[in-house]
Write a protein that binds this DNA or RNA. Structure first.
Lengths: 152, 152
DNA sequence: GTTTTTGCAAAGCTTTTGCAATCCG
DNA sequence: CGGATTGCAAAAGCTTTGCAAAAAC
């Protein structure tokens, strides 16, 4: 069996997927990878500006959208309608449980949902069925912080 | 002779839930009920204008939001980020399979997903876990219509 | 040198809000 | 009447787009 290379944060490969290798794209992809969770284009842009690696907001959007189109990023929408992007190292399709307080995300075992969705698709006769599953809650840390900070 | 409409959920009750009984609210709720599927506030507003029952766009938004807050409407987001509202006759929480071509929606048995989500919530230690599940595909009718058009 | 990409600002969208006039109860 | 509600228009977000300048190949 072939030995899989460990996907070290190598934005260069990812950038190559979406067009010319530019400094801005590299910076954006790097930041997305290091964000290690869901981030909005706005947040990423703000962070880059703060890190003295300013990249135009449009470029951030264009790069993230291209990445998502290339299948290298997951895209969800938060409660307010903002798009959140997350770097996806592998080709597999995952679902996440996201903390609404701190943004922490952890992958969950979505096997049962995949099966369920497949069944529905079969039974319904619908073709090309895609599914969106989002779980959001308050993570234990934030929960504790809240309990302590907000006595009701 | 044209009598009253068929036994439909009476908007009056729903309107009462969210405040004063006004003509505008009644119109909006009625339209939502008769839409019998997911509609955007914009679409509803446009339709009302076309039906010579003009209601301010803000009022449509306010009414739909209030309905959703009162738990009488389901709220999903389409691919472009637009909010779609659907009247929910009962108090139970449902999930739908929506046709991306014609907008047809049908409820699906979400029991397994509910269980799965509950388990995840338990196991993760997250509090107040909410879930969003959206299934979208091409319904049989639309599929037939496009049978030869989509090579895969 | 040619083509892509960038960045700014302006436009586009849906949704929200401020506020005087209006309506419900 | 008094307070809730409406509607308009303006504002607020996020995201996209047009276009000249800059960068990549």
């Amino acid at each position: 069996m072939a030995r899989n290379r460990q996907p070290a944060p190598t934005p260069l490969n990812e950038v190559a997927l979406i067009g010319r290798l530019t400094q801005q794209r590299t910076i954006v992809v790097e930041a997305l990878i290091q964000a290690n969770g869901f981030v909005s284009a706005q947040a990423l842009h703000g962070q880059l500006a703060a890190d003295s690696s300013p990249v135009g907001l449009s470029t951030v959007y264009r790069t993230l959208t291209a990445l998502a189109d290339a299948g290298r990023a997951d895209l969800v929408r938060d409660a307010s309608g903002e798009r959140l992007f997350r770097y996806r190292p592998g080709p597999d399709h995952r679902h996440y449980l996201i903390c609404t307080e701190c943004g922490l995300s952890r992958p969950v075992d979505s096997g049962p949902v995949e099966d369920w969705a497949d069944n529905i698709a079969q039974a319904s006769g619908f073709a090309n069925v895609r599914h969106t599953v989002e779980l959001a809650g308050v993570c234990p840390d934030c929960g504790r912080r809240h309990a302590a900070a907000e006595p009701l």
